[in-house]
């Protein structure tokens, strides 16, 4: 067995999901190589070498890897795939985009979004918005896997000292041209990495009203999230969305405000350690997963909570 983990990074630092994915790979019990494909990404490669459990860092440095376009990432991974039995990437926007392309080019199934590892060929994955857990077995020669990062905690072992080597780059596919990013600028932590998340739903009533959540979030050092209903209603953009088809989160503390608790939303947050729900509807389904709940008008309770902290 030999494992390849594809690092998600910004050429300087690893994204948090990468360390969780390496932690998942470590459960398979074999040498772990980490591929850092980027441009002027030596810093990210050095960071990858320090993650506990990593045996070797493979670096592919070229201008066309400055952003991870699916066509180029897939071609690169496939070019080195025959040395590995397992290829893992985080089930984030990054991994979801190119990993199925890798799997199809290798003519193997992809095992999406695994939350558990039973053996080298058997994995647990949530389906139906996390309402069902399926145990699936793959007999393919190479297992292509995306990892639910909230299901695997990063190793706390001492930093490693893995060496790095360059791998041959694959020429730019020329099929896709990157034009630009329009990223939400925020001083708050990223949703997928936050220790505390304050989320708003349809009950917020407007995008403007999210300001009261932001004030609470700033007191707690929290990220701000939203339900699909709030995104659908145009209160906030889609990158705030927590749920089955948005981001899957599992922070220490999740505060759901004005969120009724559709199963699609619960799918994205029910593994949080402590869940607080504030909703004026005493019958809201969100209360079924909450540790603590308040049946109160959020416009009264949230500012009160902010003031009390």
């Amino acid at each position: 067995m030999a494992i390849l983990v594809i690092a998600e990074h910004d050429n300087k630092q690893l994204k948090t999901g990468t360390t969780n994915t390496i932690a998942a790979a470590a459960k398979l019990g074999a040498d772990i190589s980490v591929l850092v494909a980027g441009h002027q990404c030596a810093e990210a490669a050095a960071a990858a070498g320090k993650v506990p459990g990593v045996t070797k860092v493979l670096v592919a440095d070229a201008a066309h890897y400055v952003v991870p376009l699916a066509e180029n990432m897939a071609a690169l991974v496939v070019s080195i795939a025959d040395k590995f039995t397992h290829i893992l990437a985080p089930a984030t926007g990054f991994g979801k985009n190119f990993m199925p392309r890798v799997a199809a080019l290798l003519d193997v199934a992809q095992i999406s979004d695994i939350s558990g590892i039973e053996s080298a060929d058997t994995f647990v994955r949530p389906i139906y918005a996390g309402n069902v857990l399926a145990t699936v077995q793959s007999k393919d020669k190479i297992k292509v896997i995306t990892v639910r990062i909230t299901a695997f905690d990063p190793s706390t072992a001492a930093a490693g000292t893995a060496g790095s080597e360059n791998v041959a780059v694959v020429a730019d596919s020329g099929l896709t041209q990157f034009k630009g990013h329009e990223l939400t600028k925020s001083a708050r932590p990223e949703l997928s990495a936050a220790r505390v998340i304050v989320s708003g739903g349809r009950g917020m009533g407007s995008g403007e009203n999210f300001k009261i959540l932001e004030a609470l979030a700033d007191k707690l050092g929290a990220a701000v999230g939203a339900s699909r209903a709030a995104v659908d209603s145009g209160f906030v953009t889609n990158d705030y969305q927590v749920g089955q088809t948005g981001k899957i989160v599992a922070p220490e503390l999740y505060i759901a405000v004005g969120i009724s608790g559709a199963i699609q939303h619960l799918a994205g947050m029910k593994d949080s350690k402590v869940i607080v729900a504030i909703n004026k509807d005493a019958e809201a389904p969100i209360f079924s997963v909450a540790n603590y709940w308040l049946v109160e008008d959020l416009f009264k309770a949230v500012p009160e909570l902010t003031a009390a902290l």
Partner: peptide, 11 residues
């Protein structure tokens, strides 16, 4: 739609 915002591409 990407994590953290939007990405524009020409394909």
């Amino acid at each position: 739609e990407v994590d953290g915002g939007l990405e524009t591409l020409t394909i």
